[in-house]
Each structure stands twice: as structure tokens, then as C-alpha cells.
Design a protein around this nucleic acid. Structure first.
Lengths: 152, 152
DNA sequence: CTTGGTGCAAACGTTTTGCAGTATC
DNA sequence: GATACTGCAAAACGTTTGCACCAAG
């Protein structure tokens, strides 16, 4: 709960710095985002309604849009076209890399930025100034590998 | 025209090998995909209607789905959630990397696979068997850099 | 005549928007 | 009382599907 309180405080400050408020609805949404990762808007909405039944889906969308604009959370869309949201804990603005299991759908994050050298090469070879990146690996996670190993 | 004819011939063969036909509608769609890259379904539909006004949008969707399943084209979805399609010229099954200009929206491709070493490291460190990847760099393209350089 | 393919329109799931009402300063 | 924010419902958007019709072997 310490961590939650701290994170909310930081977000509250950044909101006020930009002229926005941390309304009760926004606070509940942020708490949900702290508790669980990779949630879609619908999933946030469900979790939020469990705590405060009066919140509308539109508020969820408007809040995650606001938080994304302020770079407080990351919005990521995999191939299914559904946007998912994660708190942006690291100060560095780069997106983490994702490991997406094709079997069970689990999403893992790799916080370490492994693209630095590649980005330098791309910038040199293509005269393209890189601001951000999205990298997702599709494959089979550790758990699913174990399950299938014994059978095949 | 040589290139177009060859590409269509290859696609026709692969379709027949899998028990499908190259209908007139499918042929027109393929020709459009040969002529332009990174088209959305809607854009394919527009281009196709210019050549043959009777084709329906559903046929476009069904065709690109079929071609994607047969790995004849790549489907890629950027952060806007709109799927785009590209002919898969290289035999290797890996997705190219993309350079997306935040200023003008231009999409460039990097065919060379630069992730091989990183994938080895991820597989070792996370016990995750990688099957495919999606890598997009967001930044400013050469043309837009030139335009803004003089002003700032 | 059977099978696969098509066009149209309707349905779908996610996201956005208009608007009237609410809370806050 | 002005401003930012909310909830609801409707609309918008890209995409998929049901179905009757068509084409080809």
C-alpha cells in the first residue's frame, strides 16, 4: 500500500502541474492500473465498477487518454487491435519490450532497453531520428514450454 | 509489368496448392498490393473500385485474411489500430522492421533482420521460445528532418 | 449439382462524442 | 457562477458474419 500511495501522489502532482485534477474516479482508475498490468479499457472498467459502481466507460477512456498524453501510462496495442495500458514506472520515456505468448496469451515485459545499438545503426543508415519504439516478441512462454515438452 | 506478372503467378500457384482459386477479384486485389505498400483494407477497397467497381469491401477483407493466412502478405497494425497489408517478398518468414514518421506518417521498411542477437539473449534469459517479432521505430524521417532543420 | 466465392447489409466490438447534469473553486 | 469533469446514450469506426446469389468444375 505504501507503493500505491506513493505512485498516486506522483500522478496527482503531475496532473496538477498540467492543470488537471485527481478526481475520485481518476484515483480509482489509477489504483486499478497500479494493481494489475496490461489491462484493456473494458477490463479497467470492470475492475473499477467493483470498487465504485457509478463510473462510466467513457470516463475510463477519457482518463487513460489523459494519462497517456501526460506519459504517466503506456498505451500498447497488440495485433488484436485492443489497447492495453500500463503504468510508466521508469523515468526513461522508452517503451519496454513485450513477450507475448501465442499459446496462453500471457504478456511479459522486458524493462531493459536492448535496442540502443540497433537504433544508432538505423539512425545512421536511414537518417531517421528515433523518438520511441515498439517491440514485441511472439512466442511460447516458459510455462507453456514445460507443458508441451513432455508430450511432444 | 514483368515483376507484377511474376508475383501474381507465384501467388496463383500458392493459392492452388492450398486448394484456393485466383478469382478476378482476388487478382485485382493482389495487383493493388503489388503497386502500393502499407495499404489499409479501406485503401485497398478504394484502389480496387477504381479498376473494377463491383467489388465489395467484404471481399477485400476475406482476401487479405486468406493471403495473410497463407503468409503471402504481412498484416501489420500500428498504434492507430488499423491493419495494413504488404506483400511478403522475402522467403524468410520474419516480419520486417518499420520506421514510422510521427510528422508525415510515412512508413518505411527495414528488411534486414537486426534482432537475431537480441532474440538469442531473450530466449536464454526468459526461457521464452521466440516465433516472430514486431518492431516499429517512431521518429522523424529524412524529409521531415530537412524541412525542420532550417527553422529550428 | 455441388462447392467455393461474392456482394450486400446487418451485426459486431472497441472507442469517441454530444449533451445535459454535477462537482469544485 | 464559471470551469472542468462525469454518466449516459448514441454514434463512429474498422472489421466480421449471415445469407442469398453466382461461377466453375
Amino acid at each position: 500500500m505504501e507503493k500505491t500511495g506513493m505512485a498516486i501522489q506522483v500522478i496527482k502532482e503531475k496532473l496538477y502541474q498540467s492543470g488537471f485534477k485527481l478526481t475520485p474516479q481518476r484515483e480509482i482508475i489509477v489504483k486499478v492500473l497500479i494493481e494489475k498490468e496490461h489491462l484493456s479499457a473494458e477490463e479497467i472498467y470492470m475492475a473499477v465498477r467493483a470498487k465504485h459502481s457509478g463510473i462510466g466507460l467513457a470516463t475510463v477512456y477519457r482518463t487513460v487518454e489523459l494519462l497517456t498524453d501526460l506519459k504517466l501510462i503506456n498505451k500498447i496495442t497488440f495485433q488484436d487491435g485492443i489497447a492495453r495500458y500500463d503504468l510508466n514506472h521508469n523515468e526513461h520515456h522508452h517503451q519496454p519490450h513485450y513477450l507475448l505468448c501465442l499459446n496462453c496469451g500471457k504478456i511479459d515485459e522486458v524493462e531493459q532497453d536492448m535496442l540502443i545499438d540497433i537504433e544508432k545503426e538505423i539512425e545512421k543508415n536511414h537518417q531517421f531520428k528515433i523518438k520511441d519504439h515498439r517491440l514485441t516478441f511472439h512466442g511460447i512462454c516458459q510455462d507453456c514450454l514445460k507443458k508441451t515438452d513432455s508430450n511432444q
